[in-house]
């Protein structure tokens, strides 16, 4: 019925070229990730064994395993979570449930954006100036974890706020109308229906803090210590810092070993992310209203 005019044909060609170009951009972004993960897996894979995971390093870090680094990372992450989750969830509750649209709220939101945007090395300087020196925690798990906590606070706040706001306002009003206080409403209706979203954010934070290096390198991480930490006042090895150290500071480390550490680190981080993402997808499939 209609014949394609030259103009039409041309613009369809443009459209197809554009689509192809955007697709190529996407491929260009995705391919490197796959190459990187594959290379790490191929070169680091042979290093991975039970012994690698569960024995301390030997011979000036040129042999042995990564046990203290693995355990240290767990310490750092757990203490960071203990500090940041309560504060982050409280902040998110305030922003989602209470905050009026005023200057203070806008300032808080701007502060959150900036906490996420400040370079990690500046967070490290803050950690040194505040926790290590001023509050006297010294270089310790406590100082390093608190630094991580401040840095990853926006992750918890943003994820929690999002899942709180996904609870329809009508539920809150229904509760208020029955004489429930704001807090009773939050505790009995809003939180139970967003707890899984909050958990998703927490897992994401685990992944974030497990991979960070700069914030911990002057606040609590140390290059070589075979003992496992006994308290939050101890210094500790950490996977991320361990990778940095054996890759740049230590000579004579076999390539396989370094790739092995990188592989373990990226596996932990990507696994946590995958858990968080699949959790989210699963949650979306559950409909409660």
């Amino acid at each position: 019925m209609f014949t394609a005019t030259p103009r039409n044909r041309r613009s369809y060609r443009v459209q197809n070229v554009a689509r192809a170009a955007f697709f190529l951009a996407t491929v260009a972004l995705v391919i490197p990730v796959l190459i990187i993960v594959a290379t790490l897996a191929v070169k680091g894979g042979p290093a991975i064994s039970w012994e690698f995971l569960f024995t301390p390093p030997r011979d000036n870090l040129t042999a042995g395993g990564i046990m203290p680094a693995l355990v240290g990372t767990i310490w750092l992450v757990v203490v960071a979570l203990l500090a940041s989750v309560p504060v982050g969830v409280a902040a998110a509750i305030y922003l989602s449930e209470y905050a009026p649209d005023n200057l203070l709220t806008r300032t808080i939101n701007l502060a959150i954006i900036n906490l996420a945007g400040v370079p990690s090395i500046v967070h490290a300087l803050f950690g040194v100036g505040a926790f290590v020196l001023f509050f006297g925690a010294g270089t310790s798990i406590l100082a390093a974890s608190l630094t991580l906590a401040v840095m990853t606070l926006p992750v918890v706040i943003v994820a929690t706020r999002e899942s709180l706001q996904a609870v329809p306002p009508a539920f809150r009003e229904a509760c208020w109308n029955m004489g429930a206080t704001r807090w009773q409403t939050i505790r009995k209706v809003v939180l139970p229906n967003s707890i899984s979203g909050i958990l998703t954010g927490v897992i994401l934070e685990v992944s974030r803090s497990a991979g960070e290096t700069a914030p911990i390198m002057f606040t609590g991480a140390t290059a070589y210590i075979v003992f496992l930490p006994q308290s939050v006042m101890d210094q500790t090895m950490a996977l991320s810092y361990h990778l940095f150290y054996i890759a740049t500071q230590q000579t004579g480390v076999p390539e396989e070993l370094t790739f092995g550490v990188a592989l373990v680190l990226i596996s932990i981080v990507l696994l946590m992310n995958a858990v968080s993402i699949s959790f989210r997808v699963y949650l979306r499939s559950l409909k409660k209203w």
């Binding site: 009003e173 109308n177 004489g179 009995k188 209203w289």
Partner: peptide, 28 residues
């Protein structure tokens, strides 16, 4: 809140809270 607890309200659009029927009624 005590004032509100003495006043029952029914909305234009029905709102069943995302909890069991029993818990809905036992809420107040």
């Amino acid at each position: 809140y005590a004032l509100r607890s003495r006043i029952g309200v029914v909305f234009p659009l029905p709102v069943g809270l995302p909890m069991s029927v029993y818990d809905n009624v036992a809420f107040a």
